[in-house]
Amino acid sequence: MAQYVLRRVLIAIPTLFIISVVIFAILALAPGDPLAQFALNPAIPESTRELIRIQFGLDQPWYVRYVKWLTALVRGDWGFSFSTRGPVIDLIWQRLPQTLIVVGTAYVIAVLMAIPIGVISAVKQYSVFDQVATFIAFIGFSVPSFFTGLALMLVFAINLKWFPIVYNSTLNLAGWDGIVEQVRQMTLPVTVLVVQQTAALTRFMRSSMLDNLPLDYVRTARAKGLADRMVIIRHVLRNSMIPVVTLIALGIPTIFAGAIITENLFRVNGIGQLLITSIQNSDTPVVMAITFIFACLTVVFNLIADVLYGVLDPRVRYG
């Protein structure tokens, strides 16, 4: 087992390394002089610009700059934001909790909904329930999340006034009222993410169950007189969960990407919104940092998915 995990980790490290090269290369290849703004300023002569260039190490070849950038990144020095002048890492630490609470809640709800729906859909294949669930799942992954968001906003926030339109992150969470208010403002952004994620997970759960249902061990379990419920929950579900668990791990980076849209729509001040505002302000250090965080998330959850697969299914470990 330890050997299997070690092998996976050793594959993940070069991947992360190459991704860092890719992101750095995109930035280095991107045209445009970082000092272009100074060139327009008559108060900064050519010689001063040259000094700034040397001071920031921009005169050095790309590989020297890459190594410097990477070592700084590993040590937690992520540079300074152009617009707030504060360290990028502080900015991200400020924004991360909002994203994590919305994304985390949404994913837990999505998983808790998708598993039973998928199981019932598969056990009662082609029933009315299955057909309705299939149809809704198709709608779920065809609808752009900003459209779900706007529709929900129009109905529940503007017309019915059940929920606030804009997310307020300065809410005082002390006391019962604060918690109720927090739940109310989270409802719409979370629902948008739940719709998207549940659709895909339901389909995975259903097809995984359908793969297992006709197998011999299921017939054996039935033949020895086990109750139907028992066969489905204790035998089929457990085996069908193996691929689904890894897909749940793999889905986490995509839900973070989905959060970019919901956060912008509902003005949740998480890292997704930070990414878009930074792009609009040409705040390159922040954009780079967030893209790299997303890349790390993907690689780490790929790794977790691989390890989980190995833990749950010994055939993978020794294969």
Binding site: P31, F294, A295
Partner: peptide, 23 residues
């Protein structure tokens, strides 16, 4: 292929469009 599968597509599309738009 595995490497491309572990690239975060939405942020990367945003980043590339943002950097290469003008040229």
């Amino acid at each position: 292929t595995d490497l491309f599968l572990s690239l975060p597509s939405v942020p990367l599309i945003l980043l590339t469009v943002y950097l290469f738009r003008d040229p």
